[in-house]
Design a protein around this nucleic acid. Sequence first.
DNA 1: ATTGTTTGTAAATATAATATAAATAAATAA
DNA 2: TTATTTATTTATATTATATTTACAAACAAT
Lengths: 226, 226
Amino acid sequence: MSKAEILIIDDEPQIRKLLEINLESNGYKVWQAATGKEGVIMAANHPPELILLDIGLPDKSGHEILKELRAWYNKSIIILSVQSSETDIISALDNGATDYLTKPFRTGELLARIRSCIRRNNSDEDKSSCFTSGDLNIDFVARTVKKNNTIIKLTSTEFNLLSLFVRNEGRVLTHQFILKEIWGVGYQTESQYLRVFVAQLRKKIEENPNQPQLIITESGVGYRFT
Amino acid sequence: MSKAEILIIDDEPQIRKLLEINLESNGYKVWQAATGKEGVIMAANHPPELILLDIGLPDKSGHEILKELRAWYNKSIIILSVQSSETDIISALDNGATDYLTKPFRTGELLARIRSCIRRNNSDEDKSSCFTSGDLNIDFVARTVKKNNTIIKLTSTEFNLLSLFVRNEGRVLTHQFILKEIWGVGYQTESQYLRVFVAQLRKKIEENPNQPQLIITESGVGYRFT
DNA sequence: ATTGTTTGTAAATATAATATAAATAAATAA
DNA sequence: TTATTTATTTATATTATATTTACAAACAAT
């Protein structure tokens, strides 16, 4: 199997160097861009398996670059950001970022996230009318959910919410984003709805609702389905 | 047996090419249309065994084309779409889509779905004479229904409704879809008809009409026959 | 520890959807 | 035509689901 290619878009040379060393020593082929503009061109000419994008680029263009990339690039984009900018992170996730890491980051964690994203790229090309993972099976057309081959009865809203999670497996979905998708614009502040329905879903699909394995809480940000 | 013919309606040349290569190498005869208009004309001139329809067409929306096709075309239509919302899927099902695939899809998955649809097309014609499940037996030609080998008298509408359920065993049929199929376009809002007839059917075919085992209610969506 | 903030959960209430009987209208057959 | 069946409409009971409330638990910051 050939090396997976990763594109780094970051203006700080030290960070690029640090990433380069770590990634190359773990068998990845690394491309680098110091500006957003350069990064978009490189990605277009030679689409990488994954993009690491610094959201705090000097010309404040990180968000713009993300949107530009997401117009056509459908593999994973991991956002790098400083700790302070939580609103930046949320806005990036709303615009289609796959995951995020706050600087300074442990390289172990970075590598784990990258592995997980790349695995997903390869294994999960089929976002089709059926989804199976472990003992959970969802048929979007028949609108059925099965756990251990027995049908679980979900209400319409519960099913819609689960579908949204499953179709975005591995991605962090912000509260706002979920509320907008399921309840519509105007409900973005009703986080309590979400909590109630997440609890109900967990009760129905998790092995142990107290220690959820499928619907993971990303505190302060949203939820992630794995 | 001659090659099954498949019509692709998609504006993206790359997708058409990809599908063409995969389908032809699997023994299908492939026709292509780049616009919805063109697709409808091709389908009319030479009805294929199955249609692959991109729901995100530029000229008319795919939903319009789907409606136009379903006015007369009664074989399988598989919808292709980029990741889309629950309401899109529901709307496609309302308008008679057979199945649904989200891009990007694994070709293995696509081929499996196509085989299943074509099998269904053929077996529908073959064994359309009767259906048996548990102690219920339906003869579509004689238009008779038996429960425990004794004939049950159904009115024409009741029989049509039951046939529709049986032919779509296991999948949710939306209110809209059922109303359109049984009463025709223009009756899609008359949900009360449906409730009355479902109650009557249950009274006639269910062991215990208060706890239906055959015609299951999917609140807010429709009904499912199991 | 203390406080504030976020998240989880059960239960109460409100709202919406569905079921059913029964009345009327329409269609069909004798 | 009248009798009979079937479809549609109306009215109301019943059930399912969504929303709100209240409070507990987890967590972070001071």
